[in-house]
Simulated assay, not measured.
Amino acid sequence: MAADPAAPQKYRGVQALLAARMAQQVLRVWRDLMNPAKVDASWPAVRAALMPIVQQAREQSAVLARAGYMDARQDAGVPDDGFVPPEPLQLAIDRLESTLDVTGPVEFKKAIAAGRTPQQAMDAAAVRMVGSTQYLALEGGRSVMRRSIDADERATGYARVTDDDPCAWCAMLASRGPVYKTAVTAGDPRQGGDRYHDHCGCAAVPSFSLDEPFVGTAEGLYDDWLRVTRGRGGRHAVNAFRRWWEAEGRAAYAAPDRPTT
């Protein structure tokens, strides 16, 4: 990770800003072009307008990730050995179309069938669509980070950085701290730290030594994980952490002056 302790959150922040700007564009198209009285007729034009927005944001996310990875490498004192971050995972057109279809007209019709008003159905679909398109966009940068860490002989692993209000799942994964490429995760219910979800504000940042410090609140989360899950394993540990997070953990970590003891 970068020598600047604020660098991981700065990187996460620029990716979050990209996602927020894309969400504004998606919402504008949905509200301006979608006719709730003629869903099937209006949807093809809406989808055609949305696709390049998501594709462009995904490309921008990948560019940010390449730059962020190389900056972290330089800040960590890794010599320039010609390493070039790999390309992001390609987004299949049929996957993008299917995602938009499911979160657009299909979600709208489900909401209507459940008794929602047309405006409520529009809003419900908008929430789903923003979450899913942000996932696809940020996957561009996340795949660059994951592939770079895997391919770079100098990288030892990564850490998960959350936003200011993570869900229990993301807080749990962040509690692992720096995850080494050679780490054995069998039996650890927190494995799978590179998994994300719709509306997820997390990012992975690379590490370049075997004694990396924890990022941000991760060390406190690790201590709380050990305390809350003591004597439990597997899904029982996950459920115990989730209950604690929703009952008191989330509020404690959102507090500006949270004690570190």
Rank of each mutant, 00 (worst) to 15 (best):
Q90D: 15
L138M: 01
A155E: 01
P86V: 09
R147K: 11
D71S: 12
D80I: 12
A174I: 04
R176K: 00
E97C: 12
G141H: 06
T162H: 03
R147P: 12
D80Y: 00
D163L: 08
A159G: 11
Q56R: 14
Q134T: 05
A168R: 02
L100W: 07
G115Y: 06
F83K: 11
S143Y: 07
V127Y: 08
L64N: 13
D80W: 14
L136P: 14
G68T: 09
Y158I: 08
A171V: 08
A186C: 08
V184K: 09
V161W: 00
P118L: 11
D152T: 02
D163Q: 03
Q134C: 01
D164P: 11
A171R: 05
E139P: 07
G104V: 06
Q55S: 09
G131S: 01
V161S: 03
A76G: 08
D123V: 02
Q56N: 14
Q120H: 05
Q55I: 13
M122S: 00
G82Y: 07
P105T: 05
G82A: 11
A57T: 13
Q120N: 05
W43L: 03
D165K: 08
A62F: 09
E97N: 14
M51H: 01
A151C: 12
R47M: 09
L50K: 03
A183V: 10
T162K: 01
Q120L: 04
A114R: 07
T103C: 04
L96P: 10
A67I: 15
R147N: 06
Q119E: 15
D80F: 15
V84E: 09
Q55K: 13
I112G: 00
A65C: 02
Q120I: 00
K110E: 04
V106D: 12
R146T: 15
W169T: 11
T117W: 00
D150I: 14
S61T: 09
A171M: 02
G131A: 04
E59H: 14
P44G: 06
S148A: 14
Y158A: 10
G131T: 06
Q90Y: 08
S61L: 04
A67V: 14
K181A: 00
K181P: 06
V54D: 05
C170N: 07
A174D: 01
A57N: 10
D123T: 09
A92D: 10
G141D: 00
W169M: 08
A49I: 01
D71L: 12
V144Q: 05
A174Q: 08
P44H: 12
R146Y: 11
L96R: 00
M70E: 15
Y69T: 14
A92R: 10
W43P: 13
G140N: 07
T117I: 02
P178C: 00
V179C: 04
Q55R: 15
A186Q: 01
A155Y: 11
T156C: 14
M129L: 15
K110H: 03
C170K: 01
T156V: 01
P178S: 07
K181W: 02
I93V: 08
A137F: 04
Q119F: 09
D81S: 10
R142W: 02
V63G: 11
D164G: 06
R47S: 06
G141P: 09
G140M: 06
Y158W: 01
Y158N: 06
Q55Y: 11
W43N: 14
V54R: 00
I149L: 00
I53Y: 02
Y180D: 07
Q90G: 14
G77V: 13
R142G: 04
R95C: 03
